[in-house]
Design a protein around this nucleic acid. Structure first.
Lengths: 94, 94
DNA sequence: TTAATGTGCAACCCGTAGGTTGCTGACAAT
DNA sequence: ATTGTCAGCAACCTACGGGTTGCACATTAA
């Protein structure tokens, strides 16, 4: 369960989590409550997704005052690029 | 649920399925019962995994007589390469 | 024809992942 | 000092995924 590949692909398997990666790639940085406005779920659910992404090393967090801001790690940014490329590839293929 | 990206990442999320991809990459082609010898599970479980991989377009099957042989599709072979590369990348990183 | 082998289908079990609600604690604003 | 906002638990619910067993069908071998 601690296999890095497992963590990464487990994290990427969920569409909400891939969406979070996309948003973070656009906004650069965001809090859990900010992301909640973009997703049809509770803040706690978003928080769990962020924890999963952090566990996979795709996201990192930093607490500033009373809010904690999340941003993509280098690995997370890499995956955002690959996901975009795959989307384009799949769209043109059909 | 029919989003291609969902299907692909859902399929790749399971370690057994990634292992199946690896075996098919080595052997070229195999049946469900042959793969059962390599994995700690039942033939039906392997068969389900193969069905999932086929649903994601990573594997294709062809029935020959009473046995059905599975092989990687082009997309599946691509992913086998990427998985190997990622493994190496993660190993050297630590 | 009969037996053996390979497959597919359906029902079922069980753990866990995704999501919710409810509460508590930390900062900030007034 | 009080009130409002942000975050972090913890418990709970529920659906689904991974796996099993059991049976029925098709094909090859005896």
């Amino acid at each position: 369960m601690s296999d890095p590949l497992n963590l990464v692909f487990g994290a990427l398997a969920d569409p909400s989590r891939r969406q979070v990666i996309g948003y973070l790639s656009e906004c650069g940085t965001a809090t859990a409550t900010e992301l909640t406005g973009e997703l049809p779920m509770t803040r706690q659910a978003v928080s769990k997704h962020l924890a999963t992404l952090a566990g996979a090393g795709l996201v990192e967090s930093e607490r500033q005052g009373r809010e904690t801001r999340y941003r993509l790690t280098e690995a997370g940014a890499d995956w955002d690029g690959r996901l975009d490329a795959l989307k384009q590839h799949l769209l043109r293929r059909h």
